[in-house]
Amino acid sequence: MPKYDLFELVTHLKKCPEIFLKPSNLLSRDGLDSIALISDTYRMVSAIFLKKELNVPAKINFNSIDDNYWKAIHISCWLLYHHSFRNKPALENKLRLFWFEGLYHVTQYVKYKEWITDEERAEEMVRLLLLCFEILPNGESIAEAADKLSSISSVDRQKVLRQSYEAHERIMNIKREMAEKKAREAANTYGRE
C-alpha cells in the first residue's frame, strides 16, 4: 500500500503538461481525444489493458460536458498518472464517482487553470480524489481529512461567500443611505421624546 502523500500529489498535479489543457475533441476539432484519455486512465488504474468498454454511467451525456469541465477531467487524468494510482483495480469503480459527481459540482466554481495554478485548488482536487477513493492522506485521521477538505471546498465556500457578501453589502447600503442628505432631512417631528 503506497503512502498517499498529499504534497507530493499536489506537486505532481501542478506540473501538469500543457497538452492536458487543450479542449476536448468533442468540442473543438483539433482538441484532445477525451474518450481515449479517459479509457487510458481506466486501463492504467485497473491494470487491464485490454479493457474496451467504458464504465460510464448511462445518465452521463458527454455532450452536456462543457469546456471547463472537460479540461478539469483532462487535468485530473494527469493527476491519476501518478505512480501511486497505477495498478489499483480496487479504485476503478470509484473513478466514475470522482469524475462524474465529485468533480462535476465543483467545476461550476473553479476555472480549469486554477486546478494547477492555485495552490489551494490543486489541494482540493487531490483531496477530492482521495475522498472518492476512500483513501486517507498520509498522516491524517478521518476527521482531519474531512475538515481540511471542507475548509477548502469551493462549493461550500461559494455559498458562504455569497451570504457574507450579500449581508455585508446590505449593511454598506444602509450605511450609505444613512449618510444621505435625504435621509437626514427626516420628517416632521410632532412632539418631544
Partner: peptide, 16 residues
C-alpha cells in the same frame, strides 16, 4: 465559522 474559513482561504491566496 464557515465565514472565517472562506475569508481565510481568500486571504491565503492573496498572500501567495
Amino acid at each position: 465559522s464557515k465565514k472565517i474559513d472562506a475569508d481565510a482561504s481568500l486571504l491565503a491566496s492573496l498572500i501567495r
